[in-house]
């Protein structure tokens, strides 16, 4: 996926929304900037398929040696897929954050959260300020 086409949370998650059989499907990951800031990742905790997520609420965690970062969902919905190979291949998050590094897919029940997200330009601006 082209990072320019994605929407971003202030907390550095990206989301891609597609139509799939009448429902909206969100693919969620974390940005290259976030992975770089977290430095060496050592662990990841993922939810299970079938679980519910809520916009603004954490659904998992990534850990470096001395920090824990919750992963926040940008939308409400049901988790339909989890990239369960990630915890054993954390390097994927750094090498290919926008494709192979996707984290969960969610069937959206409420997408009003999307309106609050940043587009690529706005997100880049935020990263420049933080970096």
């Amino acid at each position: 996926m082209d990072p320019k086409d994605l929407l971003y949370c202030k907390t550095h998650e990206w989301v891609h929304v597609a139509q799939e059989g009448g429902a909206k499907l969100a693919t969620i990951g974390i940005s290259a900037f976030a992975v770089e800031q977290l430095t060496d990742l050592v662990y990841m905790e993922l939810p299970e398929v079938g679980g519910e997520v809520q916009a603004g609420q954490p659904f998992g965690e990534v850990e470096s040696v001395k920090a824990v970062s919750p992963l926040y969902s940008p939308v409400d919905g049901e988790i339909v897929a989890v990239n369960s190979s990630l915890p054993d291949h954390l390097e994927t998050l750094g090498e290919d954050p926008y494709d192979a590094g996707w984290i969960i897919k969610v069937r959206i029940t409420d997408d009003s959260g999307l309106a609050r997200l940043l587009d690529f330009a706005a997100y880049q601006k935020q990263c420049a300020e933080e970096g």
Partner: peptide, 11 residues
């Protein structure tokens, strides 16, 4: 150490 209070605080 991420289990511990000095990093995870209330969690």
């Amino acid at each position: 150490q991420t289990r511990e209070q000095h990093i995870r605080r209330d969690k």
